[in-house]
Amino acid sequence: MSAAMRSRRSLAPIVGVAAALASCNGTTGDTLLAFSAYASGVAGAAEPFRAGNFTIQLTTARMHVGALYFDEAPPGTGFDGPVCIASGVYAAQVPGPVDVDLLSTAPQEFSVYGAGTADTALSWQVWLTDGDVNEVNVTPVVELEGTATGPDGAVASFGAIVTINDNRSHGSSDPAQPGNDPICKSRIVQIGGLDLTFSPGGTLKMTVDPRIWFTQQVDPIDFSAGQLPPVTDPNCLSADTAVPVSPQDYALAPETPPPSTQTCGGSGQPCCSDDAGLGTCLGALTCNDSICGPTFCIPNSSFLSGSDPGATAGVDLFSEIISSAPFSVRYGAQP
C-alpha cells in the first residue's frame, strides 16, 4: 500500500464526519410568505343606525384604500413627527389599492397580493391614497350617500366626497420645522394595539365600519335644515381645489325602488318629469342638474370658517375617517 493510499484511507473518517456535519439543518429564522388580501364592510352597516339625535341610513359608503403596511414595532412617538414610512421593520404589506363597498360584507380583493414575513405585527398603517402619497390625489378616499331622520321625522339626504389634498393639510406653519406636517401624514392612518402574526397560507381581511364615522363623534353631525350646505354650495363643489366636483357626483346610491315600480327616479337617476314634474324627486332627494341626488353635503374641507354651514361636520367626519376606530384586521385561513 502506497503512502498516498494510506493517507486516503486515513481521511475517510474525516470525510464521513464532514458529510454528517453538512447534513445538519438550520435556519436563519423566519420565512417569507405571500397572501391574498381582502377588504369589506361590516354586518349592519347597511342598516339604519343612530348617531346623536338622528337615525342614519347609508345608501352608499365606498372607500379607496391605497395600501396596507404592517409594522413589527408598535406605533412610536416618531409618528407624531413627520414620519410617514416608519423606520421599523415591516412584517407585511399589501402595496396596492382596493375600492371597497363598505355596505357589503363580501370580501373584496386587493389588486395585488400581500407579501411579508412570518412575524408579528404590532401596528399597521392604512394608506388612504391613490398614487404617490405625497402628490395630489384625485380619487376620493370616501364617498358617502344617505339619509338622516331627525327626531321630528324630517328626512334629510346627504352626500360626502372626501379627498385629501390642500383641503386637509396646509403643511407646517412653523418656519423652523417646515417638514413637520407633510401631506402624507394626513393620508396615513396608523393603528396600534395590534398583535397579528403572519404565517404561510393565510389570508388577510380588513374591515371598515362606516357607522363609526358618525357614531364616535363627540358632537354628532346635525342634519337639521340649514346646518349643512346644499350640494350646490361652493364648499361642496370646490373645497378641494385639486378635485372639483359637481352636484351629480354626490348622486351615488343605486336606484331604489327598482325602475319597474318607481314613480320617480332614485338617486343618480334623471329627475321625473312625467308623473312628478321636472325637478321633482322622491323622498328627500333633490333634483340638481336633472339628476336626483342628495340635498346636502358634508363639506370636503377641514378649513372652513365657523360660520360656514357644515364647517364642523367636515372636520369631524374626516377626523373619524382617519381614526383607527373604524378599522380592524385579521389574518387567518379564510377571508
Binding site: 413627527g81 413627520p82 414610512i85 407646517s172 423652523a176 417638514g179 401631506i183
Partner: peptide
C-alpha cells in the same frame, strides 16, 4: 427609494 425620511427641519419632499 425607501430611506429618505422626512425630517421636521426639512422642506416637505418626496
Amino acid at each position: 427609494f425607501l430611506l429618505d425620511v422626512q425630517e421636521p427641519t426639512q422642506e416637505p419632499h418626496d
